[in-house]
Design a protein around this nucleic acid. Sequence first.
DNA 1: CAAACTGTACAGTTACCTAT
DNA 2: ATAGGTAACTGTACAGTTTG
Length: 250
Amino acid sequence: MSQSKAYAWQKLDPSEEAGLWAKRAQTGSKARCRLAELYLPFARMVAAKLYGKRPNDEIEFGDYMQLASVGLLDAIDRFDASQGTAFTTYAHYRIQGSVLNELEHYTERQKQHGLQRRIKERIKSMDNTAMSTDPDKVFERLAAVAIGMAIGMMLEDEGLCLNEEPDAVIAPAYTSLELRQLSRQLSEMIECLPERHAQVIRYHYLQQLDFSEIAKLLGISKGRISQLHQAALAKLRSEIAQLNQGNLAW
DNA sequence: CAAACTGTACAGTTACCTAT
DNA sequence: ATAGGTAACTGTACAGTTTG
């Protein structure tokens, strides 16, 4: 399969991209963040190719992706646009180097923090009202669980359309029409979130980056990412609760 | 030997603060 | 009011050690 539509990196007008490179070094630069967002699918593709050649299954794709994103940021910071070479050519070597170099030093401990655990934690983080006994929280809890399942499905849909990740989990058990609809609605809701909130959700759930990596990408602190994450989830829950009032089917 | 305990590392959360 | 930083905190998983 050729690169899926969802992962095709967006081509910018050359002058617009040149502007981004020029502004990238400014403190708290939106340009740097925009470039990272633009080329993250490229980093993912490089990670996927390396993952395809992995010698064993000890390290999961999510970990390759994390290392690739670090390499991407490094490439963005060091790339000299005036040299006339394409960024992807330069970035390919840096990302590959970053992944291979870090994998060499990968500790047993890091291996233990794999994708499955991250997904489990993220779905759990959606359900932080689960222990509530307050009846008023029941709908909120249902919405939280539904969001967790829907985002879980979105993660797996990513796997379905990303052939470079050969061992992606396929055929989820809960592919009901209702959840498919919720997943679609959820994507639309995420697009309607404030930009920062949407970025955190996309990076965390779709690109599988942890808060520290997102913080580096956006140039803000890990604590702030957590706050944006909580605020985004609160908004999504509220949206879903409203949806629920109009449609008791789920 | 296995269960219980303890220490450590890490990801994420929260309270409180400052700057705009 | 909002965005963001910082540091202390919580929860979890794991490794190593102790104890019966």
